[in-house]
Write a protein that binds this DNA or RNA. Structure first.
Length: 264
DNA sequence: ATGGCGAGAGGATCTCGA
């Protein structure tokens, strides 16, 4: 089973590239983030024409996640509110950042973690709170299934190895100790970074700023991740970053990360 | 320290991303 995560920065603007990539890479589930479109306007037919199923959870202008799956998914649900009480979720589901479904006994959780804007800002505090609630959310999912693949745009670089230039990173959003601690607390539930099982090198990134020619300089960050529960982690046989879409004209600033699981 | 670039909404120039 192959699953990919890709922050496309508007699925409508990127539609031709996403469909083209899917034709070249016929994977089982494609997890999209930053679709930036309400569900009624999601370009479904572009995917259903390729015999993929579409499950979308979007909003106007911002955020938005979707699952594009070759086979129908079971038990699809959206938002933290699907499993957590309103007293915990509050208004967090107003931003569409969570969608999940099950394929062949694997629960795929597709996340778009808040960016956090700048350290100490309201959005930064929102991000830290969101990660706290994420832990509670995954804790409930783990009671239902021992096979979780949690992927998406985490907007956190866990190690200095995941940043092209970690100098001054403690003042930099996506790399502060508080963000790393919040994500590690989530992972302490028993989730492991599949990419690092196969690759311990630096210089391996999934996002490059549009500005200052960052991609040409490989001045990137590895912030798009696949995390797996122990059995799935054991069964993972590859995890790769495909930089090809980032080289196209008018690209997303992120590129796909693909995981392969051997479930036989 | 600041801005660089790009998308969406709306119809000039904002907000937001990371």
């Amino acid at each position: 089973m192959k699953i990919a995560t890709w922050n496309v920065n508007s699925v409508r603007t990127r539609l031709e590239q996403v469909v083209g990539w899917l034709q070249d890479n016929p994977i089982d589930v494609l997890c999209l983030q930053e679709t930036k479109v309400v569900d009624e306007s999601f370009p479904r037919s572009a995917f259903t024409d390729l015999n993929y199923q579409v499950y979308a959870f979007g909003q106007k202008s911002y955020n938005g996640v979707a699952l594009i799956s070759r086979s129908p998914l079971s038990d699809v649900n959206v938002g933290f509110g699907a499993v957590l009480p309103e007293s915990v979720v509050g208004d967090l589901d107003e931003q569409k950042r969570v969608i999940t479904g099950v394929l062949d006994g694997v629960r795929v959780v597709n996340l778009y973690v808040p960016n956090g804007s700048s350290v100490g800002s309201d959005k930064y505090l929102y991000k830290l709170h969101w990660l706290k609630v994420l832990r509670e959310y995954l804790e409930v999912l783990l009671q239902q299934s021992q096979n979780l693949l949690v992927c998406g745009d985490f907007n956190v670089a866990l190690e200095d190895l995941d940043i092209h230039d970690p100098k001054g990173r403690e003042k930099q959003v996506m790399a502060t100790d508080a963000e790393r601690a919040a994500l590690r607390h989530v992972l302490d539930l028993g989730l492991s970074d599949v990419f690092r099982k196969f690759n311990q090198e630096g210089g391996q990134f999934s996002w490059w700023d549009y500005r200052t020619g960052a991609f040409r300089r490989n001045a990137g960050w590895r912030i798009d991740h696949h995390y797996a529960t122990p059995d799935l982690y054991e069964r993972s046989i590859a995890c790769t970053i495909d930089t090809a879409p980032r080289k196209l004209t008018q690209p997303s600033d992120h590129t796909p990360v693909i995981v392969e699981l051997s479930l036989s």
